[in-house]
Design a protein around this nucleic acid. Structure first.
Lengths: 250, 250
DNA sequence: TAGTGGTCTAGACCACTCA
DNA sequence: GAGTGGTCTAGACCACTAC
């Protein structure tokens, strides 16, 4: 807005800008509304476009804005709560889970990421089934997943029976249901979207994501590992021990 | 390294740079080692410093690098696993939890963030105790927390008894232990460090953080809410239902 | 084709750390 | 005081979207 000459305390311009914009978003804009373009905004605030962009990037990181190339910058809706654990442990693919199987492939144990191969105890020469799944909430893609299942864990799998990619994925998931599940162990960390994930999530490569790594434990052994990649800008991951979630914000 | 003229496919320079640097980190550098400074690196790769910095920022976001003004850029150790839930539910401040109480204050219900006030059901005029705690793992500050406890939840609290700030914090925590805890409900989302948190976490304002919001439920009502802010660059939050965590990576 | 955000440059100065 | 990363500028061109 006007001139702010209390720069006696050194506060980066982009930080101050972010605060001003954040307040403006609360008071003067509605969800979905399009902001002025970056060149105009920069001129209005008397800063270089790069500086303005630094402020916008922060606000996008916090889920306040959504930017789309060729379109513009819009005010983002509040983050959606995405339930990550289910009350009572269950295997992926159990009835009612939120994921859609996409395809499956059998790969060599040497080609899976070390962070996955290690807990599974697989090496080069072993076979690992990799199931791809996606998750759509509120009509929007929110997550992509790779589920790693050593062939050893599903000895009854009839590999030849399935014809299409989705059928192959379902076959692996169905075999998992036969096993007892003793427990799950999860880790959440910040990452950036690989090119492949970015495409599925409708974001640019490098976009911030929340990576959830889950170990599925049966009889003291890790029988499967999943790596789920959630859009960090639109998702708030929820972990509840009660069924009636759907609380807090909208 | 050398010239890479397979730019037939349009891939941003910073993205390619990031890949090259990431590989170099794996093969040519040890944890803690100092990289060449940004001006030298940019010259070496034949790009502007801003472009080089874009790649470094990504790698820092992924926890691969650590940058400190006036010092340099170093290779970061693998993220540490930080247990967020405890086996068996328990109140904050229960014996053995990883947090250090810092201080406590009684504030008006109108001045707590809406995302906290709403589930607690507090309004302006109500009194809410705010306990500040910090968490240090491996000699490094990893998280800062604000715990909101409505005065209504701890009617037995003797406010005048405590003398120092830490004692006041402990007094609130001790009162909590008297209540039954039916369940906890958590949410994890990406945020950026407020100036205050940044100082405690030894980071610059705006640094990416994982914000864990926990609702403590007693008899169907939310009796306390905590907002914990973890350094996203150094932490991997773990949620396990088994005691013997301490697995995966180092 | 016009307009948007995304990438990139070649500078400059500042805040901080440390010898 | 020398060297580091952090901020900022004023441009330019590119990739994408929508009309």
């Amino acid at each position: 807005m006007g001139t702010t000459q209390l720069d006696t305390v050194q506060e980066p311009k982009y930080w101050h800008l972010k605060t001003v914009l954040s307040d403006a978003l609360d008071s003067e804009f509605a969800v979905g509304e399009i902001l002025p373009n970056e060149r105009d905004l920069a001129a209005r605030f008397g800063v270089a476009r790069a500086t303005l962009r630094q402020a916008l990037e922060q606000l996008e990181l916090e889920g306040r804005l959504q930017r789309r190339r060729g379109v513009g910058t819009t005010v983002a809706p509040p983050r959606m709560g995405v339930p990550v654990d289910r009350s009572g442990h269950s295997w992926p693919g159990a009835p009612g889970d939120a994921w859609q199987p996409a395809d499956a492939a059998a790969v060599d144990g040497g080609s899976v990421p070390p962070a996955v191969a290690e807990p599974l105890g697989v090496d080069a020469g072993d076979t690992v089934h990799v199931v791809r799944r996606t998750r759509v909430d509120n009509g929007q893609p929110v997550a992509a997943e790779l589920l790693y299942v050593p062939a050893e864990s599903v000895p009854g799998l009839a590999t030849a029976a399935a014809t299409g990619p989705v059928a192959r994925a379902r076959a692996v998931l169905q075999e998992l249901q036969r096993l007892d599940l003793d427990g799950e162990e999860r880790a959440v960390e910040l990452g950036s979207a690989r090119a492949e994930d970015a495409k599925q999530l409708d974001r640019l490569p490098g976009a911030p994501v929340l990576v959830v790594t889950t170990r599925y434990v049966t009889g003291g052994r890790t029988t499967a590992v999943s790596v789920s990649t959630y859009r960090a800008d639109t998702c708030r991951l929820t972990f509840g021990d009660r069924d009636d979630v759907a609380v807090l914000t909208g």
